[in-house]
Simulated scan of single mutants.
Amino acid sequence: MTEQTGQGGRRPANDGPKAAARNRAALVAAAREVFAEHGLDAPLSAIARRAGVGQGVLYRHFPDRTAAVAAVLEENVRQIEQAAGAGDVPFAEVLGVLTWHLTESAAFIGLLHADRAVGRSDIRAHALDLSGRVERALRGRLPAGHRLSADDLVLSVAMVSAAVTGPTRQEREDRALAAWRLLGVEVGPVRAFGGREPTG
């Protein structure tokens, strides 16, 4: 077995925790894309390939499919909570972050309908908890006098998420925005929290 060497014959530095964090972030992003394209039963090997890592790295971070799905869902919810918790982010932009996750993540759509989901009992309880977190984050930021009441907000999110269909990300986004327009609700830029532009 030979060691790989970098320029000048030196071994590349071992980034340790930094590399692990980068690999995990790449795997979560890849899982989101692969699940959106091929559903939750997509082969885990496709996630590793998309992330540019070996299957051993994938299994170190996510020992099974449930762990990979849970990681994508957790990241989606965390971003929505961060957007909702940022006092300088208008409510319309929080809805833009939510809409980005709806268009990017097939798993996230299932999460928002977890209360009536069938099958996938391995993630149902976790999904119900995450769904509650999304609801609390959105209700906590709903401006006084907004077109939607707190109860209407939850129903509206369910209606929009049900409209998010289509083979491409752009088609899903267009349908989500059309659904928000039909509800008379303003939505800010559709992007991940932190200003990243949508991919694909």
Rank of each mutant, 00 (worst) to 15 (best):
T2Y: 03
Q4P: 05
G6C: 05
G9Q: 11
R11W: 00
P12K: 09
P12F: 02
A13T: 05
D15Q: 11
G16I: 07
K18E: 15
K18C: 12
R22F: 02
R24I: 04
A25E: 15
A26E: 04
V28T: 12
A30D: 12
P43Q: 13
I47G: 05
A48C: 13
V53W: 10
Q55K: 10
Y59R: 14
Y59W: 13
Y59H: 14
A67M: 13
A71E: 04
E75N: 13
I80M: 14
I80A: 02
V89P: 00
P90C: 05
V94W: 00
V94K: 00
L95S: 11
H101Y: 11
T103S: 11
E104C: 09
S105F: 07
S105R: 06
S105Y: 08
A107I: 09
L111P: 00
R116C: 04
R120F: 12
I123E: 05
R124F: 06
R124M: 07
L128H: 02
S131D: 09
R136E: 08
R139W: 10
G140N: 02
L142A: 01
L142F: 04
P143K: 09
P143W: 09
R147Q: 13
V154W: 15
S156N: 06
S156W: 04
A162M: 06
T165E: 03
P167R: 15
R169Y: 01
R169D: 00
Q170R: 07
R172W: 07
E173R: 14
D174G: 08
R175E: 04
A178K: 13
A178D: 14
R181V: 11
G184I: 11
V187G: 04
A192F: 01
F193D: 03
R196Y: 01
P198C: 03
T199C: 00
T199G: 14
